[in-house]
Design a binder for these strands. Structure first.
Lengths: 346, 346
DNA sequence: AGCGGTAACGTTAGCGCTAACATGTGGATT
DNA sequence: AATCCACATGTTAGCGCTAACGTTACCGCT
């Protein structure tokens, strides 16, 4: 007689199989894998042995369905290729791994509609929390998140209304700080190379902070160029954006110093200056934003703002985990430190 | 009288709720969301309206459990910060999104033990397939994969025994090609700056291919340095590896040309050369590997091998999807093209 | 002896969905 | 008019696990 249903074709050993083999109930097996301290050492050992022998790997889909918790986080970023972003992702990954969470990730190419789709796709998997980039989202995204009641952390910006929690830094302040540094160095005619993607609060804030500082110093604050980007979904225009940015600034009458919305733009400016035989900083001072790895390496060193993406990502994951697990949270809006890093370029 | 179980606290609308509201059976709602063409247009509309009204979002955990398919892929990479790697991840992401798959990703820091842990953590979520980096894995990883019967694609290397499928390119051949180019340019004393992480087949293959070419040309093939890395889990040593690599080569008697295991090392070499007042290529020729974005931008342009990470990632996802969906696969081992890109540095 | 308490298990009742099969309906076909 | 068939929908039986509660054995205590 065959009591087994025909269905059991190739698949996995189940808790039930392990329970039979070990001569215990299904629930005891569950406890061994989920809450080992609730089982006596002898039983635990026996169950684990049988589990290993049968190649048992717990099915979290089933566990998640039964428990209503998934230990899964969804992360939405504009681009997977942005290396500064990679630091914050690594920070999240490390904190999440530490707490036994896993994550799904997707990129939106800076499109708010793509973001809404991504959020819905994630929610279908019932994650325990979400990380979004920036504080500007579509109505549909807001509706989905409201309906879900999920913990959400927004990263990189703390400007603007936040959904639930946010980590970032004061972009506007930081933009002002590096501009004031250039001013204090005595550079008078200062140009600004903006980020190629319009509508991003964090880049607007940096720029506005910098321009305000220029105005307050009585300097021109209208030498602003934005590299043309026909392909805004790609970050690959970043160095080239600096190249075309410097070209535009020179066409517009030249500058003594260039402030860039990101280090990659600044490196592009430095490369272009090198090509034109302009010395940095003697002929042209350059400052960036982000303290990407290359900033310390490129001669003569790029003066920039260090933004601590890794720490920010870690903090984002940390807040999310606290909220999920019902632990107290110091503050819903966490600004990580930034720091002016002075190097040879300005 | 309260027929509802107390459990139904805050949660989500379920298919059952939508079915009641729309006056159809649960199964019809399921069809509307999973296989719309099996439902009449009128019914479909009604169900979707009620679904929207109730804020219904299908619970894939439940669906996956019932169907045994998850439309989820696990991707294991050594590092999330490696920008060339990011291209291949983007390629996978784009192909997967196109086919409505999502992915989890984790980094191992080049540790095979961490890889095994990651693979088990993924398998607990019953993905439909896995992507691993490289062809060298721990016994535990092999056992897990064998037990799972899951489709697996290994990327970046096609050397060595493969588990199921692989995409990459001929690292050895490519290493030989760029070395022969340097030789043909007439450079005689050629040094090699290796990758800081030992034991990676793809980097060993590049180096061996290059050194063979040098030997065949009757040149010295023993001017090989490996940047010391106290922190092999981080890629952040990459530019700096080039810096220390050039220092070591100069200490060892100097070279006319440097061949690097990656573009980032090559850029580090170029920066160090600039600092020392050595002109590239007049005093020192430099060649890299990978054609990272910066290779085209840094003056005078970095001669390198273009490896098409994006296409490789796309191909990996494509093969995986084909296997999952039972479609035919041309070949289990797919080598994408690489190309020598000649620029000003060598 | 009788009591309560606790550790270590077991039993029950689902979680929300889908595969597989069953049923009903309205033509087209003969 | 009987038959067949395709289409649209419903019914049944789980998928593999966990929360919640129930049971048992054994301990120390009065």
């Amino acid at each position: 007689m065959n009591h087994d249903p025909v269905k059991r074709l190739p698949g996995w050993a189940t808790m039930s199989d392990v329970a039979h083999a070990a001569g215990v109930s299904l629930m005891t097996v569950s406890r061994v894998y989920k809450n080992p301290s609730a089982v006596s050492a002898a039983t635990r050992e026996r169950v684990l042995n049988e589990g290993d022998r049968l190649g048992f790997v717990p099915n979290m889909l089933a566990g998640n369905l039964a428990s209503g918790r998934s230990a899964m986080i969804g992360i939405v970023v504009p681009s997977l290729r942005n290396s500064n972003n990679a630091n914050s992702i690594q920070g999240m990954a490390d904190r999440l791994r530490q707490a036994s969470y896993q994550f799904m990730i997707t990129n939106t190419g800076y499109s708010l509609d793509a973001e809404a789709l991504a959020v819905e796709a994630f929610i279908r998997r019932r994650p325990d929390g979400l990380v979004l980039t920036g504080t500007r989202h579509s109505d549909e995204t807001y509706a989905l998140l409201r309906g879900s009641g999920l913990p959400v952390v927004e990263v990189w910006e703390t400007e603007g209304p936040i959904i639930d929690m946010a980590t970032g830094f004061r972009n506007r302040e930081a933009g002002g700080e590096i501009a004031r540094y250039l001013i204090a160095q005595g550079y008078d005619r200062i140009g600004y190379v903006d980020y190629p993607v319009p509508g991003l609060r964090r880049y607007e804030a940096r720029r506005d902070g910098a321009l305000d500082a220029l105005r307050q110093a009585g300097l021109r604050a209208d030498i602003v160029v934005s590299p043309l980007s026909t392909d805004v979904t790609e970050d690959t225009s970043s160095f080239r954006g600096g190249t075309s940015g410097l070209q535009q600034l020179l066409d517009a009458g030249g500058v003594r110093a260039v402030l860039c919305a990101s280090d990659l733009l600044a490196v592009g400016v430095m490369f272009e200056a090198q090509r034109r035989g302009m010395r940095v900083p003697e002929d042209l001072a350059v400052a960036g934003f982000g303290d990407f790895e290359i900033a310390a390496e490129i001669p003569p060193g790029l003066t920039t703002i260090r933004t601590q993406g890794y720490q920010m990502g870690w903090a984002a994951a940390d807040m999310l985990i606290s909220r999920i697990e019902g632990l107290p949270i110091d503050t819903e809006i966490k600004n990580v430190d930034y720091a002016l890093v002075k190097r040879g370029s300005a």
